[in-house]
Design a protein around this nucleic acid. Structure first.
Length: 849
RNA sequence: GCCGAUGUGGCGAAAUGGCAGACGCAAGGGACUUAAAAUCCCUUUCUGCGAAAGCGGAGUGUGGGUUCGAGUCCCACCAUCGGUACCA
């Protein structure tokens, strides 16, 4: 049995009241240019949360860390007079809704609506200051109309290598525009997940399993829509430099893009000099160490070679074996190398050496040229393979003593390499590359790990492609045919084959006598690739965002969300944004100027919160017991925003006690049970020491907010409140400054106490009718100064005594006072003083031998 | 393996190269109360000497280094977490 709970202040009376007030008055509506009341002199600030996927489980306290942080900042910047855009919406297309719908027989639209209402209500219970007039929902036809429109812009675009920009396809004068579109159809091996009945992007496959659900994924060739994201690989990489993002996220994106510099080298076949194999290597300096060559099993050249019948047979078996291997199996078997010899040879251009050609699945068709030169002395994988199949290993770099092969370092003299003997690898790399280019045997080459983005899914609950097929050719719908809504369907289960569920909607599929609709839908990422733009102008029916509005709000100034989107959403959105930028639709090259990742909130047991562990904390319960302000503040008080930290109910209680102290500082309950201001509060000026602590608090809270150090800002406010708890009289100025500092953190309490104060004191009312309509206080450095300072006196860095001196004491006099201090004499007796260091206002260090 | 982050009391944490542990939780003691709740006050890194006030010593994952002075800077290592993995 829980003990009866006594409310220390009446939060359950006023919190809902203020939430209602803010909602009814649209208190936090951000004005667009052209809107009445728009103030062109106010600085704009765009503060964005990663919008949630409205799942059936509702929010838990972990979701609220980031939302609370951005809300506090939004309220803070509003008090500073800025025009703050702080919106919220719903990323509502996606697999879970569809799977739930299949299980329960309800249409996903129904469950999605229900979940959204629940989420909205939960967020409103926290008193978040969203501009609800800008709420968006990716499943709303008025929204996805523009998702489809942007798709069409990308479909009608290509990457022009000569301008290095994305341009309208009409600037391409070649013969086959379809082969160059930014959105294109490809028949390539894709990640097919039978359990989910859909294909997945590379980014959605983790360890050979689907990121959602953890089901096995297999490679199979399918005709799919792709985005040519690789065209922007270099810009996606280099533009990271300027962004104010966590270094770790930048690094994750760099690794994912995976740029490497090397060379392509052409090897001629021994008996067919006209046939050449091009390999990619990052180590052209080891060219003399190549002892064999390997082709990927899918390499197209294999079709053209004259192989002996027995080899041909072995090859076919090997190819079909490796093709049916799932990615998971390939990973599991990574240590054991397999392959077959082709019984053909090619010629190393640098020395004319004849080396054998093999086929092995440790070489991937999807990277580089799908062929490698194997240098077993200086590459781990080649070394393993060479030892497994007894191929020669030749070292070409002087290996340091005690280091065994394979040696892949880049320090050491080249050996066994006539043209470059004695050089260091970096220099040799340049020399060889120049030699290859000069003799027509290869060239410098840059490769990326990043691959094109697989953009279609075999789902019902997603945006249909604005594409129709006619005589085997795809073509775009007209803009005036948008939005293209999914058909109403009773049965949208996966077909059990690779055919998408939309195929079952026969009427919908038929576009005309000649044409049928594209059956795939877009992945969940589509809607989130541009939602931050729609918030700027959510009701615009003429454009995805109005030009003037876009030029005003520009990029997101601060974006807060979880690390899980490091390479998915954040890379995709950057790609769309750059495309829109090149095409002239947006004014910045990057969408998110500053990014912050909030840490995870763990369960009270220190484990990740999950239903199965039974350690999920629901905000609803916390609010019922302690109120929204206490929940908000505790989320911030727990520790640095970016850190993971375990939940603690007693910790909430501590914050709750603090808020109750603030309440009692101002309000008193009479024996009859009515509320009134405490009589302590008067318009008496603050004493010097009160003024010092109040102004120190303004300074600390302000700088902490700028640095997103919410936890220490709260500590400072606690120190300040503790200092005034027994003050009588309690100066009004201290109280209204404190309330304004507190108002972004605990907005309900601040609002409530403010109106009580304002009712009695006109000077408070003059600052604003509500705390949220007042202004952020400023501090005066002069008030922070002390008349006396305490010096720490050290001997050889060890604390020996303290000394209180007037703040104006000169360094010389400080030194004298320290040496003369009676308690120092024992330490200094018979000691030669080597040096005395005085740090003004802080310490004296006496150095003796 | 590679890349990145983090290691400070019983716990969450704080500390422009300058008093380590602010602020809070938990624990213990006290005041108020018939009693409890609520509230308020005190103690709480480890350790040596002391009845006590007090006086010392050690201490920020480990080992080195730079410095008058290092949680903070440098080098090496260990542990935990996250990402990634045949990318030539």
């Amino acid at each position: 049995m829980s003990t009866p709970f006594i409310k220390r202040y009446p939060f359950s009376d006023f919190e809902p009241r203020w939430q209602e007030h803010w909602l009814c008055t649209n208190a936090f509506h951000a004005k667009n240019p052209g809107e009445s009341g728009f103030d062109p002199s106010a600085k704009k600030r765009y503060i964005l949360d990663m919008f949630p996927y409205p799942s059936g489980n509702g929010l838990h306290v972990g979701h609220l860390v980031g939302y609370t942080a951005t809300d506090i900042l939004s309220r803070y910047y509003r008090l500073r007079g800025e025009n703050v855009l702080h919106p919220m919406g719903w990323d509502a297309f996606g697999l879970p809704a569809e799977q739930y719908a299949i299980k329960t027989g309800q249409h996903p639209r129904v469950t999605t609506e229900k979940n959204i209402s629940r989420f909205r209500k939960q967020l409103q219970l926290l008193g978040f200051s969203y501009d609800w007039e800008r709420e968006i929902n990716t499943t709303d036809p008025a929204y996805f109309r523009w998702t489809q429109w942007i798709f069409l812009q990308l479909y009608h675009a290509w990457y022009n290598p000569s301008t290095q920009r994305i341009e309208h396809i009409s600037t391409y004068t070649g013969e086959n525009p379809n082969s160059l579109r930014l959105a294109y159809v490809a028949n390539t091996p894709v990640n097919w997940c039978p359990e989910l009945g859909t294909v997945l992007a590379n980014e959605e496959v983790v360890d050979g399993k689907s990121e959602v659900g953890g089901f096995p994924v297999e490679r199979r060739p399918m005709r799919q829509w792709m985005f040519r994201i690789t065209a922007l690989a270099d810009r996606l990489l280099s533009d990271l430099e300027e962004l104010n993002w966590p270094e770790s996220i930048k690094q994750l994106q760099r690794n994912w893009i995976g740029r490497s510099e090397g060379a392509e080298v052409m090897f001629s076949l021994q008996n067919q000099p006209d046939k050449k194999i091009t390999v990619y290597t990052t180590r052209p300096d080891t060219l003399y160490g190549a002892t064999y060559l390997v082709l990927a099993p899918e390499h197209p050249l294999l079709e053209e070679l004259n192989l002996s019948p027995s080899v041909q047979k072995a090859l076919e078996k090997y190819r079909s074996d490796s093709q049916t291997k799932s990615d998971l199996e390939r990973t599991d078997l990574a240590k054991k190398k397999t392959g077959i010899p082709l019984e053909l040879a090619c010629i190393n251009p640098i020395n004319g050496e004849v080396i054998p050609i093999w086929v092995a699945d440790y070489v991937l068709m999807s990277y580089g040229t799908g062929a490698i030169m194997a240098v077993p002395a200086h590459d781990e994988r080649d070394n393993e393979f060479a030892r497994a199949f007894h191929l020669p290993i030749r070292s070409v770099i002087q290996t340091p003593q005690g280091v065994s092969l394979p040696f892949h370092g880049t320090h050491g003299e080249l050996i066994n390499s006539p043209l470059i003997n004695g050089l260091e690898p970096p220099e040799a790399k340049i020399n060889i590359t120049q030699w290859l280019e000069g003799n027509g045997h290869g060239r410098r080459s840059i490769q990326y790990k990043l691959r094109d983005w697989l953009f279609s899914r075999q789902r019902y609950w997603g945006e249909p492609f604005p594409i129709v097929w006619e005589k085997g050719e795809h073509r775009a719908l007209n803009e005036n045919e948008l939005p293209l809504e999914p058909p109403e369907m009773e049965d949208f289960r996966p077909t059990g084959t690779a055919e998408p569920p939309l195929a079952k909607a026969k009427d919908w599929v038929r576009y005309s006598d000649q044409a049928t609709r594209e059956l795939n839908t877009m992945p969940q990422w589509a809607g989130s690739c541009w939602y931050y733009l729609r918030y700027c102008d959510p009701k615009n029916q003429e454009a995805f965002v109005g030009q003037e509005v876009q030029e005003y709000w520009r990029e997101v100034d601060l974006y807060v969300g979880g690390t899980e989107h490091a390479v998915l959403h954040l890379l995709y959105a950057r790609f769309w944004h750059k495309a829109l930028f090149d095409l002239g639709h947006v004014t910045t090259a990057e969408p998110f100027e500053r990014l912050v990742n909030q840490g995870m909130i763990l369960g009270p047991d220190g484990q990740k919160m999950s239903k199965s562990r039974g350690n999920v904390i629901s905000p609803d319960d916390v609010i019922a017991q302690y109120g929204a302000d206490a929940l908000r503040m505790f989320e911030m008080f727990m520790g640095p925003l970016e850190h993971s930290k375990p939940w603690s109910m007693t910790g909430v209680e501590g914050i709750y006690r603090f808020l109750a102290r603030v309440w009692r500082l101002i309000m008193l309950e009479t024996p009859e049970g009515t509320l009134q201001l405490t009589s302590n509060i008067t318009e008496e000026p603050m004493t010097a020491s009160q003024r010092r602590i109040v102004h120190a608090t303004i300074k600390k809270v302000t700088s902490d907010l700028e640095n997103l150090s919410f936890n220490t800002a709260i500590s400072q406010m606690m120190i300040c409140v503790n200092a005034f708890l027994n003050a009588n009289p309690c100066p009004l100025e201290a109280v209204h400054i404190l309330l304004r500092l507190l108002s972004p953190f605990a907005p309900h309490l601040a609002e409530e106490l403010w109106v009580h104060l304002a009712a009695t004191f006109p000077s408070v009312k003059a600052l604003g009718a509500l705390a949220s309509e007042s202004s952020w206080p400023t501090w005066n450095e002069e008030y922070l100064l002390f008349e006396e300072v305490t010096y720490v006196v050290q001997v050889n860095g060890k604390l020996r005594t303290r000394l209180t001196l007037a703040a104006t004491t000169s360094e010389e006099d400080v030194e004298k006072a320290a040496l003369a201090d009676p308690s120092m004499q024992a330490h200094l007796l018979n000691q030669a003083i080597k040096k005395v260091i005085v740090v003004p206002g802080r310490l004296v260090n006496i150095v003796i031998l």
